[in-house]
Design a protein around this nucleic acid. Sequence first.
DNA 1: TTCATTTTTTGCCTTTTGTCAATTGGTTTT
DNA 2: AAAACCAATTGACAAAAGGCAAAAAATGAA
Lengths: 188, 188
Amino acid sequence: MEAVKDWLKGLVDVTDEELKAMNDIAETTLVKPNEVILKQGDVADKIGLLIQGAVRTYFTDNDGTEHIVGFAFDGEPIAAVSSFFNRVPSPVACATLEPTLFIWTDYERYNSFINRFPRYNSVAVNALGRALGEGRYRMEYMHQTSAKARYDSMCTLHPKIIERVPLKYIASYLGITQETLSRIRAKK
Amino acid sequence: MEAVKDWLKGLVDVTDEELKAMNDIAETTLVKPNEVILKQGDVADKIGLLIQGAVRTYFTDNDGTEHIVGFAFDGEPIAAVSSFFNRVPSPVACATLEPTLFIWTDYERYNSFINRFPRYNSVAVNALGRALGEGRYRMEYMHQTSAKARYDSMCTLHPKIIERVPLKYIASYLGITQETLSRIRAKK
DNA sequence: TTCATTTTTTGCCTTTTGTCAATTGGTTTT
DNA sequence: AAAACCAATTGACAAAAGGCAAAAAATGAA
């Protein structure tokens, strides 16, 4: 629950009553590495916070190739937001990279909470806004034409990725091959 | 106002009272082509709907190069959402491509409306979710490795772009040079 | 219409990245 | 310790995309 309080800090002042209500709807789960926690095409029914660990988000194209869309680490919110809030099939899948601890709730309980404390809607708006902002940054370095420039941007913007994610996923995330990434690294 | 009602269709049933309130806070403006309507680094104070016309969203990097992030056309919502909702400087700028008619309101009036009709918060959540979903699609074809594949995806997913946007902007949007795009086109 | 300006196309050559195959390095299992 | 496995690197060559300059086409203004 501490993780949740931390995450809400600055967004909203949480009352004791609200905290208790959150406690009532929340569950924690420890997931093994390399487990799929959301399948592509399913409607996401859970929303939560990654307390500790790492997750990759990806989709599989017509050729069966996986494309990494992003990563999430300790303390970050985790949800296929567009799927969860709009009840549509998720275009992406999520899987753990490490043993990962989540605190989460499901759509029904989330809504019961929101109905009881409607002001938390603005928290959702805020979180979504932030997620969108991050998407922009992603875009920003996908647009840096050379693979090297993209790699460098990633290193400065998201240093955690290099430390904790296997190279093959990073390469996919940057839209280049493993070999190219390896060669970029070699020149350092 | 018709455009607004259309856009809200399916998201929420608008009562007469709500419609009147929207009318009270909304303004329409016709903007000339190639006018900047939001500067990069400014906090977006307006949110609205593009009734007719076309807009490009872009950012300028350290080298002074402009990178197109997206386009918006008739009937689409227009806002630097993360900036508007979270009151932070916008990482992107917006400019018209054609003479463009907007219906819009500002942050203050938007909030007065939300306070009066809190259930519209969920409309915002929905719209943000949708925007995020669209970002995913963008991602999806940015990940298609070859420039040709990216161009083809764009043609199917957003045919409007080819019809109405000058080639140089499309090239930037796809992350390739104008020449490469021209050559891709030639092979048809 | 004609001239001027902007946008798009084309040619030539260079650089970057991809592909495929082989190798190295490290980890785990037996 | 050896075998098996996975991740990361390296080499050689092919393909894709970029850069620059010039030509052609389209657009707009006088």
